[in-house]
């Protein structure tokens, strides 16, 4: 059963001469435990789609249309007010660069606590316990919990975000370029931690990336975006074997070249 269905999402940039659509009619579905790769070149609208899904579109951008079915609830994405109540913290977006996602002025333990109080509405003591548990689950102890984000390494900051996700138990986890700038070993470690986390939560994972190589080995399904539209989607293996759209074609060709298949 799908845990999430997105239908006909449009995101507009309002301009004096009329709205300019930046995301145009995007639809896809996500099953529990599934990893969906949202692939495209920069400026294709991948991040905007993720922001719209999690209610975080930066003004003046707005969702002009779009229906989201989540856990049996139906939501009209163009009605901003409908958001908070129905969504809770069921769609969690982890931004590229863990530095940007964390509050630099707050110690990381209290940041997770705060999210648990504001989102699922836990009482403070319970929130504190769950935050400590979450950090420990990702190998971060009491000392890390008392640290400010800048005192932690990049890898530790990424694990703080995973701990946050674990504590909030979202149904849908969206990760925007989660492995950018990591070396091969850390990349594998990161993808393993993400996979375990989504399994454990029974959640679906949407991975956003412009690196097809990372996605090809990680995602079960791929959706290829170009100029605000999903131009092709399907199971990863099938899509890579028989690309139909010109962009998917050149992506697959480039991938084959980089993998050394046609040197």
């Amino acid at each position: 059963m799908s845990i999430m269905t997105l239908e006909d999402l449009w995101v507009d940039l309002p301009l004096p001469e009329g709205p300019r659509p930046l995301v145009r009619g995007v639809s896809f579905r996500l099953e529990a435990g599934q990893v969906l790769g949202l692939m495209g070149l920069s400026g294709a609208g991948k991040t905007l789609t993720a922001c719209a899904l999690s209610g975080l579109l930066p003004p003046p951008l707005r969702a002009a249309r779009g229906r989201l079915r989540l856990n049996g609830h139906a939501l009209d994405l163009s009605r901003a007010g409908a958001w908070r109540k129905a969504r809770g913290s069921q769609v969690l977006l982890l931004f590229q660069g863990a530095g940007a996602a964390l509050n630099p002025l707050m110690r990381v333990g209290p940041q997770i606590e705060e999210a648990l109080i504001a989102g699922p509405g836990l009482p403070r003591r319970q929130a504190r316990e769950r935050a400590a548990q979450a950090l420990e689950r990702f190998g971060l102890g009491a000392r890390a919990a008392r640290s400010h984000p800048h005192q932690l390494s990049g890898g530790m900051r990424r694990r703080v975000l995973l701990a946050l996700a674990w504590a909030l138990r979202p149904r849908v986890l969206i990760a925007d370029e989660p492995t950018n700038g990591l070396d091969a070993a850390s990349r594998d470690e990161m993808s393993q931690m993400f996979s375990q986390l989504t399994q454990e939560l029974g959640a679906g994972l949407i991975l956003i990336s412009h690196d097809l190589r990372g996605l090809a080995s990680w995602a079960d399904h791929l959706a290829v975006m170009d100029q605000g539209e999903v131009v092709e989607q399907g199971p990863t293996a099938a899509l890579l074997a028989r690309p139909e759209h010109a962009l998917t074609h050149s992506l697959v060709e480039s991938l084959a070249f980089l993998e050394g298949a046609h040197v």
Binding site: L41, N180, L212, L251, S254, L255, F257
Partner: peptide, 14 residues
Amino acid sequence: LAGLDTINQARLVK
């Protein structure tokens, strides 16, 4: 070539 998308990486390598 690290921050580039797959297509640009392949082009620049060639």
